[in-house]
């Protein structure tokens, strides 16, 4: 599989800062995958995204984009990528449609703005000034802005932050469809629900360094307790017992419990991404 990005020993220090915001990152983003960069605030996620989108240029280390040195890519690079910023990035005195038409005019290929705005529920508000939009509407418009040039790679920073569950679902569906169409997604977030539902692989960023790079499934297997917990009726109450997942089919005690007791619930002890996040980063999810 081709790598969309190959990042080696990436470091960056902001002017006047005493230490690197990112320090020696190594990772790959494969073409056609959704790669999640996770970590607490200030971990270096947004800085990494700004470097990959060439907003910050004086970095150290090497970045290859589809085999080409990122430093050597010209402005045509921006024809290939779509960037969804965390904060709203629109001219507030202009309408949503005026904003979209302005930005779209600079790309050689463009997406169907009406279809995108309709999908995120903003088409009927297209002639309303962005300054009058709610936070959720601005976030959805940010996503449309990122998709305007039908990009090959999509960068999304906290893409569902501030959205209600229904609208977050729509955006996540659109991201999944983008991936199914061959697109690559670089997602930075601290929302573990987004990660669980979207990401093919994740990297945990802690204090500018990568602590883990793996698939959510592998992480769950590695960090999970792998237990089966049974709740059953016993003497008028509810009892609970846990059994190790290994050899569960031959566990006589477990099997007799299933045969002889009235089972209330049966759960595998799968660890959530939230638990893994806390264990890896040492930071509680907000």
């Amino acid at each position: 599989m081709t790598n969309a990005f190959t990042v080696k020993n990436l470091s960056y220090r902001y002017p006047k800062a005493k230490q690197d915001a990112v320090a020696g990152l190594d990772f790959e983003v494969r073409e056609g995958e959704i790669f999640g960069l996770l970590g607490p605030s200030g971990a270096g996620k947004s800085t990494t995204q700004k470097i990959l989108t060439k907003l910050l240029e004086d970095y150290r280390g090497s970045i290859q984009c589809f085999g080409q040195d990122l430093r050597q890519t010209g402005k045509a690079y921006y024809e290939q990528i779509g960037v969804g910023f965390e904060m709203p990035v629109h001219f507030t005195k202009l309408t949503a449609m005026e904003n979209m038409n302005f930005f779209r005019g600079f790309y050689t290929k463009g997406a169907d703005v009406q279809a995108l705005l309709t999908r995120v529920g903003l088409w009927e508000y297209r002639d309303v000034r962005v300054g009058e939009y709610s936070k959720g509407m601005k976030v959805r418009l940010n996503f449309v802005r990122a998709m305007l040039n039908a990009p090959r790679i999509l960068f999304l920073d906290e893409v569902t932050n501030g959205l209600d569950p229904a609208n977050a679902r729509i955006i996540k569906d659109m991201i999944a469809e983008f991936r199914q169409g061959g697109g690559t997604v670089f997602l930075t977030t601290h929302l573990m629900s987004d990660v669980e539902q979207l990401c093919d692989r994740v990297a945990f960023c802690v204090q500018g360094k990568l602590a883990e790079v793996s698939t959510p499934r592998e992480l769950k297997l590695r960090y999970g307790s792998r237990m089966v917990t049974v709740e059953y009726r016993e003497a008028g109450g509810v009892e609970r017992r846990s059994f190790p997942m290994e050899g569960i089919g031959a566990n006589a005690e477990f099997l007799s419990l299933l045969r002889e007791k009235e089972i209330e619930t049966l759960h595998s002890g799968e660890t959530s991404m939230e638990d893994i996040f806390i264990r890896v980063t040492g930071v509680k999810v907000a």
């Binding site: 060439k54 921006y78 990528i81 960037v83 910023f85 990035v89 629109h90 600079f106």
Partner: peptide, 14 residues
């Protein structure tokens, strides 16, 4: 403040 400088900088123009 509006964040529009950032979004202008990711346009394919120098």
């Amino acid at each position: 403040t509006d964040g529009t400088v950032k979004t202008m900088l990711v346009l394919p123009v120098p």
